[in-house]
């Protein structure tokens, strides 16, 4: 699957890249854990709320353009062909 990062999540402190190809994992929870292992604690703390029961307050995760809140949240299943986009909360207009 393809995972894309945006805004400051591209900084070296977090993902340090725009995009990464990731081998299959079962769901968003597993993906978050695996990416946290790779990118470190700061990424982890941004991605997850405490206890890994839900996403962190400052992050938006989309699977194929749909926020996971409207799918199955942190347990949204993932397939190899999926595009996962990870944004910090942003606004503008």
């Amino acid at each position: 699957m393809t995972v894309k990062f945006f805004a400051y999540l591209r900084d070296p402190d977090y993902a340090g890249c725009r995009e990464i190809t990731w081998p299959g994992c079962a769901d968003v929870l597993q993906l978050g854990r695996e990416l946290s292992t790779r990118f470190g604690q700061k990424f982890h703390d941004e991605f997850f709320a405490e206890g890994e029961t839900e996403l962190g307050e400052r992050v938006i995760v989309m699977v194929n353009g749909r926020r996971v809140e409207f799918l199955s949240g942190i347990h949204t299943p993932l397939r190899d062909a999926d595009l996962i986009q990870i944004f910090p909360v942003v606004a503008g207009g």
Binding site: F6, Q85, V90, A91, G92
Partner: peptide, 16 residues
Amino acid sequence: GLSAYGTMILVNIVNG
């Protein structure tokens, strides 16, 4: 967020 990137930060997420 707004001070770091300005309103153009929306491009990727709206496109997303």
